[in-house]
Write a protein that binds this DNA or RNA. Sequence first.
DNA 1: TAATATAGCTAATGAACATTAGCTAAAGAG
DNA 2: CTCTTTAGCTAATGTTCATTAGCTATATTA
Lengths: 196, 196
Amino acid sequence: MTTKEKILEEALTLFSKNGYDGTSVDQIAERVGIKAPSLYKHYKGKEDILNAIIDAAEVRYEELFGSDRNIGKLPESKDEFIRSTMGKISFTMHDPMIRKIRKFLIQEQFRSERLADITTRHQLDGIQRMYTKIIEGMMNKGLFIKDDPKLLATELTAPVVLWIAQADRQPHCEKEIMDSIEKHIRHFYDVYTNIQ
Amino acid sequence: MTTKEKILEEALTLFSKNGYDGTSVDQIAERVGIKAPSLYKHYKGKEDILNAIIDAAEVRYEELFGSDRNIGKLPESKDEFIRSTMGKISFTMHDPMIRKIRKFLIQEQFRSERLADITTRHQLDGIQRMYTKIIEGMMNKGLFIKDDPKLLATELTAPVVLWIAQADRQPHCEKEIMDSIEKHIRHFYDVYTNIQ
DNA sequence: TAATATAGCTAATGAACATTAGCTAAAGAG
DNA sequence: CTCTTTAGCTAATGTTCATTAGCTATATTA
């Protein structure tokens, strides 16, 4: 990893923990293992680092939600649906980079229109689009009753997004939150399936 | 309003707009109409102001969700349910004080365990508890089918919480968001009612 | 090999910031 | 009426911060 990349990584780590205004360039430099003035050989200034992080967040968004490749095989049964959905959630919750980007966006969402926009894409549009596809596919297979797939996707994912955010700020509640999430997904499946 | 109260109000306004670290005591003093050193006649320092705001947020939480008085009369029909729910949402979205507390908490939720805790109460527990009561009441009246009222409350309120957060950062989408919310509530009512 | 570019360093700069010291005028209490 | 408290002020302090200037060694290029 180049110094330039390491700066970005350490800056994101600090921004996600203490926010942009709560992080000094000295802190970033120290984690990288250089002195603050050396940062300016790679970036114009603190704001330039911020913009590079935002660019990276856009790229990561495209990777996660840009294509339909990440949807994977459509679940064929209740157990498969639960397992596949819980797997995706667990990955999103625990992947260090996604976690940092999520915490960073939450805190900095009001800093600019662009950040507001990206936050909405990460928190609402992306996940919704992904699950709209999945639910639509399962409706076509007769696994879910016919209904508005976009609406169902929101109803499935919104509680999960809120619970993940809770786990980010209260990690000691994670076990409890995971139980709530699974209970919710099971309930969702039961409600939108003909089989009682 | 006393100077002490005005300091709190203006500090909250600035914290909700620019965050705690993004706000200087000079800025607060200027909005109050005094010089920064005069603030110290009322509060020990910037952090003391922060703590007073957190205390106020706790009080406001109790006012909003502490008692069952705010639930009001139980809706008797679909239209009444939609109207009463949309009314509560519109109030929460537009009340200036609640809005500021909400934006403040979103940005500062990682600053301390106490702030994390209050954020969860405002964003999840409070609203969930309120709607659990309402949905439970409507189940007992036969307006909703029997199901886990806590789970249903989460499924009703979580998308709304996310959309309100979106409206906070992208106010130009408010109309669109309001439409989504109403569509969601109508759908929720239809799904959990026997009447097709 | 000679010239140049790169990436680090120390030292310095100037601005912003939270806070303190100490003064003053007005309000309230005895 | 006098004393004391209150709440404002200006000036100053010390710290932190982002950034720049200028030096040096190493790596790259011609």
